[in-house]
């Protein structure tokens, strides 16, 4: 822990970063996002299994940053969001001081201790405990035995459903939606200044919390993530109604990988899947 504090303190002292977006523990022992502006603030920075938030969501508001680098503490999953934001012109790599942390999993329920049963789904199939690139690296890497990827089993089950059954499944899930848009607010890839759901002339999405409006909102949100979702699972974590939103986004990520060999947010140089045409693209969907 001292290592992270020290790195951040040095970065702020040496002006390698103007401020650092990180985590701190509040008086109720909850780990929350925190922006350290001074070397003294850096003392409060922390990282643990309870540091669940993807802090990259704050980055797009600094996209025309001119006052020095922004420090950010990232887990390997969060770094994909940072990479994706760079790919999508929302921030420049040169404007960032990336403090990578070795992560061995984060909790599902922040009120409980980290253990085999209290692990986020994304950690169960996480491939990289260490971020692939960074300006500084903190935390020791620890090995934890991860439980089975039960979401993959559920996805396989949904794949086998008929179209009608699937519609029924999702209708039942979307029925719960209260249109609070927490999924959108927490998503690092949802950086539009005006979301399509707020566009009223003409109105694209019925914004009432009816089953029709819910369906179109959730499907359009999912489609706007096609080939773009980096899989941080923040939408599902933020959803107060417990809708399994990542079933949709993860599925689309898998399709993007199986059909085009592409994973968003994994390379700073690779052209993005959406917006890139190649003559070798499959056309077998045209019947």
């Amino acid at each position: 822990m001292n290592e992270l504090k020290q790195i951040c303190k040095d970065a702020l002292t040496e002006k390698k970063a103007r401020f650092i977006i990180g985590y701190k523990e509040d008086k109720n022992k909850r780990v929350k996002p925190f922006i350290a502006k001074t070397p003294e603030d850096a003392e409060k920075l922390t990282f643990s299994h309870h540091a669940v938030n993807n802090l990259a969501v704050y980055l797009s508001r600094f996209k025309n940053n001119i006052d020095g680098k922004i420090g950010i503490v990232v887990k390997s999953c969060d770094l994909k969001a940072v990479t994706a934001l760079i790919q999508e012109n929302q921030i420049k790599r040169d404007d960032l001081f990336i403090i990578g942390v070795n992560c061995s999993g984060v909790v599902l329920d922040v009120a409980k201790e980290f253990n085999k049963d209290n692990t986020q789904i994304k950690c169960k199939y996480c491939q990289a405990k260490t971020p692939p690139y960074y300006d500084a690296l903190a935390e020791e890497s620890k090995e934890f035995e991860m439980p089975d990827d039960d979401q993959a089993e559920l996805m396989a089950k949904i794949d086998k459903m008929t179209a009608e059954e699937r519609l029924e499944f999702w209708n039942a899930e979307f029925e719960k939606c209260i249109k609070c848009y927490a999924c959108r607010q927490v998503c690092p890839m949802c950086y539009c200044e005006k979301c399509i759901v707020e566009k009223s002339e003409p109105q694209w999405i019925d914004s009432s919390s009816t089953s029709r409006g819910n369906f179109s909102w959730n499907i359009i949100r999912a489609f706007h993530q096609a080939g773009r979702c980096i899989g941080c699972h923040e939408c599902e974590r933020a959803c107060p109604m417990g809708i399994p939103l990542t079933l949709l986004t993860r599925k689309m990520g898998m399709v993007a990988f199986s059909e085009f060999g592409y994973r968003h947010g994994t390379s700073l140089t690779e052209p993005t899947l959406i917006g890139t045409y190649s003559t070798s693209d499959k056309e077998d969907f045209i019947k």
Partner: peptide, 13 residues
């Protein structure tokens, strides 16, 4: 221009 978020996917396509 008031709502463009500058992702430039339009430029790519």
């Amino acid at each position: 221009e008031s709502t463009c978020a500058g992702c430039f996917y339009c430029q790519k396509v």
